[in-house]
Simulated assay, not measured.
Amino acid sequence: MSENLSERLIELEIRYAEQEKTIEDLSGEIAEQWKLISGMSKKLNALTNRFLELEEQTAPEVAVTKPPHW
């Protein structure tokens, strides 16, 4: 019976080590993805601002006039 418990304990330790490694790998992957998303978000904001600036520059100026019924 003691051998069976020993084998079970070893199996649990192996599973624990594998799960710990998987969690570390996933954590690193999430950190990399977060950096990528953050960089893309900054670029999107810069492009949006640039687009709005260009849109303002190319928009025709509408003259302010009184409606014909005034």
Rank of each mutant, 00 (worst) to 15 (best):
I37M: 05
E3W: 05
N45L: 10
M40P: 00
L52R: 15
L9E: 09
T65Q: 11
A17H: 11
S27V: 02
R8K: 15
I14T: 12
M1K: 14
E7D: 09
P68S: 13
I14F: 04
S2W: 04
W70R: 08
K66D: 13
L52P: 00
K43S: 09
L52I: 04
P68K: 09
L26W: 00
S2F: 06
S27I: 03
E7W: 05
E24S: 07
S27G: 05
K43H: 06
I14P: 02
M40C: 03
E29Y: 04
R15V: 02
P60Y: 08
K43P: 00
I30E: 04
T65S: 10
I37R: 08
P67R: 11
L54K: 14
V64F: 10
I37Q: 05
S27C: 01
E20P: 00
V62E: 13
L44A: 10
T65C: 06
Q33C: 01
E32H: 02
E18M: 07
L52M: 06
W70S: 15
Q19E: 09
A59V: 01
Q57M: 12
E7Y: 06
L54P: 00
L9R: 13
T48R: 14
L36C: 00
Y16A: 13
N4I: 14
S38F: 02
G28Y: 01
H69R: 14
L54I: 11
A17L: 08
E53V: 09
E18P: 01
T58D: 04
F51P: 00
M1R: 14
G39M: 01
R15F: 01
E13T: 09
R50G: 03
L5A: 10
V64M: 11
